[in-house]
């Protein structure tokens, strides 16, 4: 099999020269400081993984990745940036739908590992039809939508938008959410980051481990860039909508996430594209461990 192609974009050439050294063996490395050149390469060649800087003179990285998503959907998208600003990270989720958000200065081994994982996922994705030309099958069990948000307006919008097609559960606390997760898989989660006084980050991170098909929308007024980056990498949230969010926007995103769920359910190979990184926060690791343990026991009891 031929080597996977890796495309590197950064406005600082020294970054490119340096990064390339990590991929000397095993990759066909293409690099450029010009995002338009990158788009041309994406169009003309089969690129497995694209790694882009965020802040560039002519185009933001998240914008380039959005274009990459349209031009070459199978390509895995990674952002490598030294600038953690909230807008950039929100754009990288919502528009770039990045696989990983990595920071400069980077850890060589980690970057190599992430790129290798991305390359093998891309390899598999290229082998199946891409989602754009695939008819979505609406068969299978009725999708279940879990709301973890005390905000009534969120619940109302979810009901109005998806009420006719989905079972909708409005969880009042972490315990309730867990009971619902124990009963049956969840298709779409709409969650704030805080449920009352509980930080539900660990639940979001666990849900994806439980069922990789689940699509996760975060709706919150809470904005902390480093936490958002964690959620991108470790929960693969697919949308991040800052509150207050308009009904129209939430509705539109709900629709597209439900559709995404159907696509992913029909094409299991695509699930891998949303594979999560391990939880990094030690406290959350413990919380997630307990959560999974309790969930296991609950499931056993329900199935008994």
């Amino acid at each position: 099999m031929s080597k996977p192609t890796l495309l590197l974009i950064d406005d600082e050439e020294r970054i490119l020269r340096s990064l390339r050294m990590l991929f000397f063996v095993g990759y066909n490395v293409r690099m450029t400081i010009d995002p338009y050149e990158a788009i041309r390469i994406l169009r003309e060649e089969r690129v497995h993984v694209i790694v882009s800087d965020q802040r560039m003179p002519v185009m933001q990285g998240s914008e380039l990745l959005r274009i990459a998503r349209e031009t070459s959907p199978a390509t895995m998208r990674i952002l490598l940036t030294g600038y953690s600003d909230l807008d950039a990270s929100i754009a990288s989720v919502n528009e770039g739908e990045v696989f990983r958000y990595l920071m400069k200065p980077w850890n060589g081994d980690e970057v190599k590992k992430v790129v290798a994982e991305a390359a093998s996922i891309a390899e598999a994705s290229f082998a199946v039809r891409t989602h754009s030309d695939m008819a979505v099958e609406l068969t299978g069990a009725k999708p279940r939508v879990l709301i973890m948000d005390h905000d009534e307006s969120t619940a109302i919008t979810v009901h109005e938008t998806l009420g006719d097609r989905c079972d909708i559960i409005w969880a009042s606390d972490a315990q309730h959410a867990m009971e619902e997760l124990a009963k049956q898989d969840i298709s779409v989660v709409v969650s704030d980051l805080m449920l009352g006084a509980t930080n539900v980050g660990y639940i979001l991170k666990t849900i994806k481990q439980l069922n990789p098909q689940t699509q996760c929308i975060v709706v919150t007024s809470f904005s902390d860039t480093s936490r958002l980056i964690e959620l991108i990498n470790q929960a693969q949230i697919t949308r991040f909508l800052p509150k207050p969010v308009s009904k129209g926007i939430l509705a539109r995103n709900l629709e597209s996430m439900l559709e995404r769920f159907h696509i992913v359910r029909a094409q299991p190979v695509l699930q891998k594209r949303q594979a999560v990184a391990p939880i990094s926060d030690p406290q959350e690791q413990v919380q997630a461990g307990n959560f999974l343990g309790m969930l296991g026991r609950l499931r056993a009891r329900i199935n008994a």
Binding site: R14, M21, G82
Partner: peptide, 21 residues
């Protein structure tokens, strides 16, 4: 500081990587 952090992280990124390599 946020801005300067970015300015520093870029050279820091390649310097560190180059030294590791």
């Amino acid at each position: 500081v946020a801005g300067v952090a970015h300015e520093i992280n870029t050279p820091l990124g390649y310097v560190q990587n180059n030294v590791a390599i």
